[in-house]
Amino acid sequence: MTQRIKFFLINNGPLLTTITIFILVYFAGGRLYPAMQKPQVFFNLFINTAALLIVSIGMTFVILTKGIDLSVAGMIALTSAASAALLVNGVNPIVVMILMLLMGIVFGLAMGSIIHYLKVEPFIVTLMGLFFARGMAFIITLSSLTIKDPVYRYLALTKVHIPFFEKAYVYIPSLVGPILLLVAIYLANFTRFGRTVYAIGNNEQSAMLMGLPVARTKIIVYAFGGFCSALAGIVFSISLLSGYGGYAPGMELDAIASVVIGGTMLTGGVGNVIGTLFGVLINGTIVSILQFNGTLSSWWTRIGVGALTLIFIGIQSLFYMKKKN
């Protein structure tokens, strides 16, 4: 029995550490700034990190295959700019959303195919993707375009009340991430696609020799990443009710950091999406603490997240070494 517990702790060590750190950080915030103890502040995390959560989920799969996707923030910007432009021209909002998601998927498929078939490093391909997407966004519009579409406004402003918490609410777009999370958990654990992702991350050659569909899975992973980025872009443009090529600067790095803090290893094959949720929440909590403080520069978020990411990579290696023995 104790043996089992030991195994459980070692196998789930990084995840448990992430959850513990989240709780610690959150309670520390609550002690420093009693206003943070209100339930709404917790739910604000979901409002503020709606887009980040979505891209981080996509990023988790990419990193699990030992890849990386630097294009996500560019895709968010492009989606926001493109949807704003289309909406201004009176295109039906549902059609806009479908078009955006298709664009994300095609974009991801293209990057995935280049990475797999032409054997170019994911780092390079997706960095080009980032430049391309941001560039396209600025070609569409050089300044911020406001969205006045009623459907978008409705989605942006409708509060969803949280059961059991009086007066606590989130907005409709904040629900997309958590729902996607459930889908992602299912994909990762109960489908051949998901398990193949893990196998590829451990050893692509082996996965290929096991007769697993390596090419297809890798390309789908990037397509899913592109889909998530476009989805995040839609959520982003709904919450800001505007589109602009400069939106979400550096969010790809926040996403990577959240995934790593969530216990997924950059070396591939190890990690899970639940961890990513907590990685994102930690990121959001640090931001709110700084907001409550009000005097510190927002760059402290980056410093905090950076430090945590480093600590995490250290913790992971420790667990990894333990596991090897």
Partner: peptide, 25 residues
Amino acid sequence: INLCTNISVAENIMMGFEPHNFFGI
């Protein structure tokens, strides 16, 4: 040996031919 060390023994044996139920694997 061409298997993946990060996934379970069962998966290494069955992947590609794994049994499914209505829910998934």
